[in-house]
Write a protein that binds this DNA or RNA. Structure first.
Lengths: 248, 248
DNA sequence: GAGTGGTCTAGACCACCTT
DNA sequence: AGGTGGTCTAGACCACTCA
């Protein structure tokens, strides 16, 4: 379907950068450029295509936006691995569902600290601005490639010694096992965004790379917020899937 | 949070295009550039900033990727209206949930025809390749601004005279009211994509504009597929929200 | 240190939208 | 017809990665 709707009318000549895009996309589809393979350098593509470097880069940006390739800052362009499927209705934690799909998940804690609640945080936690909250910054990778960075906020009242725990696994498991918390409701919000500044740096991507922002809020039976999580994903690493039974 | 994580370390000078981005983002935040307002032309921004036009365009692309502005092909750059919230678990149809949010939805039928099932379609419908299917192409707008184009496939066996119906409203309503179909399960898949070719043209955007692809499949109680829908959204027009009660 | 992508310049012509 | 964004060229220097 994507192919049918978006590749119709391939006939016309169109811009040069789209011709180069089609050429590279073809090599990826045919396997001449395998998953994870590095593309020729921009200057080599320039020679091969006779275009200016800016035009070559436009073709590469197009493929990046489509999720076919990605870049490692100042290292090169590479063919993207297939995305993992994320189902917010069957939330099992990153480590679990990535492993289930035959991939190797890893988590790295970038920092843990106590921060003062911003106005927005205070609204979510129902506390006063400036109230201390635990903030956990993590980077997660699939098959060694960083795919997201996240910041999780937790109310210290719920997990007083959280920052002393091992936090490279499932945070939900820690909250459940160690603090007896029971999550009964998840609220998940998603939107395309651009990865910039800190986030881009942490993921090793160029600022402005397209991404997906996933905001998760977990609540217990008393509707207390348990986790407030912002995940910045590389947009080509994730596919969201929701399965819903219509209520009668 | 977005602000906290992404705007930290604003101190450094950084690239010129990010400085211009910050300037324009500030004007939008402060309301100096109102929602729907048109930005100065690229050449005017060039004069104001002393940068080359390519640099100005980089700043604009950045803001576009963040969803703050959008372009009308060869007309200009405009401040994006706020997104509508889409909740696949409370699926009520585009016309309904857009109106609920105080916006004005419209639908336009671009074409309706019988097409032969592709290999992918055949797999979804459980039919042979080449089997005739009804295809409905529509464009939908919010407050007059086109936000998505879609192609819906329906099995003629389920709705034999579908193409003779009025199809500018809710298709699900037609299938339910006229053909007695009952949808009990929805399968929704989402991923960032690039809007290219036909889709870009139909939305009046430049090829390569970032978008969101939503694929919906509806099933009845007998697990027969009722609707198979591909929606290509402008990425700044939609925000996905899922609310899930954890099963016990 | 060689090579890579990241940023930037200063032009140019075109297709298309707007008036 | 004039202005807009879309495409393209042919350079340049820089920050960074990698061997």
């Amino acid at each position: 379907m994507t192919e049918r709707m978006q590749n119709a009318a391939d006939a016309g000549p169109g811009p040069h950068y789209l011709a180069l895009r089609d050429h590279l996309a073809g090599e990826i589809a045919q396997g001449a450029l395998a998953v994870g393979a590095r593309l020729p350098s921009e200057r080599q593509l320039q020679l091969g295509s006779g275009a200016a470097r800016g035009t070559v880069r436009e073709a590469l940006f197009q493929l990046e936006a489509e999720g076919l390739i990605y870049r490692r800052d100042r290292s090169g362009w590479y063919v993207s691995p297939p995305p993992v499927v994320y189902d917010p209705t069957r939330w099992a934690g990153f480590m679990a569902y990535v492993a289930e799909q035959g991939r190797v998940p890893t988590t790295e804690t970038l920092g843990k600290q106590s921060v003062a609640a911003s106005a927005a945080d205070a609204a979510v936690f129902g506390c006063a601005i400036g109230t201390p909250l635990f903030a956990l910054d993590r980077r997660r990778a699939i098959d060694g490639r960083p795919v997201l960075v996240e910041r999780i906020l937790v109310d210290p009242v719920i997990a007083p010694d959280l920052l002393d725990e091992g936090l490279d696994g499932s945070l939900t498991a820690v909250l459940t096992g160690r603090y007896g918390v029971r999550v009964v409701r998840n609220h998940v919000e998603m939107r395309p965004c651009a990865l910039i500044k800190d986030v881009a740096r942490a993921l090793g991507v160029a600022s402005g790379t397209p991404g997906l922002l996933v905001v998760r809020r977990s609540f217990d039976a008393g509707d207390r917020i348990i986790e407030y999580d912002h995940e910045y994903w590389r947009h080509d690493a994730i596919r969201v899937l929701v399965e819903v039974r219509t209520r009668d």
